[in-house]
Design a protein around this nucleic acid. Sequence first.
DNA 1: AGGTCGTTGTAAAGGTTCGGTAAAGAAAAA
DNA 2: TTTTTCTTTACCGAACCTTTACAACGACCT
Lengths: 229, 229
Amino acid sequence: MQNRVLLIEDDDELRELLARYLTNQGFTVREAANGRDGLALALGQDCDIVVLDIMLPDINGLDVLRELRGQTHLPVILLTARGDETDRIVGFEVGADDYIPKPCNPRELVARLQALLRRIAWDQKSDVDATRTYGDLRVEPGQRRIYQDDAPLELTATEYEVLQVLLAHAGSVVRKTDLMQWALGRRLEAYDRTLDMHISNLRKKLGNDDPPRIETVRGLGYSYRVPAV
Amino acid sequence: MQNRVLLIEDDDELRELLARYLTNQGFTVREAANGRDGLALALGQDCDIVVLDIMLPDINGLDVLRELRGQTHLPVILLTARGDETDRIVGFEVGADDYIPKPCNPRELVARLQALLRRIAWDQKSDVDATRTYGDLRVEPGQRRIYQDDAPLELTATEYEVLQVLLAHAGSVVRKTDLMQWALGRRLEAYDRTLDMHISNLRKKLGNDDPPRIETVRGLGYSYRVPAV
DNA sequence: AGGTCGTTGTAAAGGTTCGGTAAAGAAAAA
DNA sequence: TTTTTCTTTACCGAACCTTTACAACGACCT
């Protein structure tokens, strides 16, 4: 696979050196010498990963990153001055995936690029908006509805979220703390029985089968049973 | 989301320092002081991310990583001696996701952990479901179930943990104190027969074979013998 | 051999925590 | 407002971890 790297770096010499090296390593390289151009290219969609210098003549690299993160999750590796710990940590907090201290070893840059791309390739996940089917249930994220045998279930907003999360993980256990976070958007506090109630109501609406579709894993969470195919 | 970090580091002081810091930051931390235990825990316990020291007393950290990569894509951050570029690059080539030079700043470690977790957050089930097989037993961490000849064993949470730890160390003896710590999460006190009871119940559920699958090593602990296939 | 001591096996009892759910209350939507 | 949805409260039963008690075993000593 030919990976496309966008290199945002104002030092012409360094940029060209890296560009040459990356090209030799099999990457397709696109270059920008300042933040404005870089941002435009990055948003232009045709690259897989961005190498971004923090020190830029016009816009600060961190601002470029911030801007980028507002619109995309494109992987970004920061180039920082060696030893500047603040930049690095702020960089991570703004959403960088990695950083390399300057002056940098091209081999290390390639290694990091590949580590990050490998990770992403592995994580490439299915389309969130696609309709998914689990046995007799069908999730239609577009309409925020779930159908059972082509009849829509009358779910409340929260119930939809809970069931949808369970289905997305069908067959494996979803911890209560995660289910709470993902479906209700808040932390699970002690003595909070909200989730239990939603599960109870969901089971009722799904038809209280035996064995139950939503299985309790005591002390941990719940799991939606994969229907035998 | 409650993230679970496995910390593999032999320096007790550093390990405990980091463990405390990470716990304060909201992570669930599990610790190992050497490569062998670390590997077993990484394969066994479900954790979301591994922090791995390269210099370990028994197995080299890179070998631990190699072994791990043979079976899973669990994200791994390497702890390397500052300036040792070779280790870093080899680490990336073996499949590490990131590295931090020692001595490390805990804030930076957290920032990197979060950057990596954010990156993989899209895909929640990365590969927690790496199933492992030991003779006629099959561990399905995603479902938190263990199957014997394709029939699920009806294990309680603690029984699952205990058996799973024994299996991860299959063929070698697990000391009672370690088993207690890893499976029950607390120290083994005098006159505490809890563990013995769980073993007894497990044996019953596994079918009281002769010779027993879970072997007693008097004065030491237990060991799971993988039956000849 | 027999005796003592520490360790292990296990049945049964004890006690605690956890989850299910009805019903009431609070909050949000209509 | 009324209606719907979400959350809290409360009680119960079940699951299950732990303790207790006793029997069995092994190691070591005399």
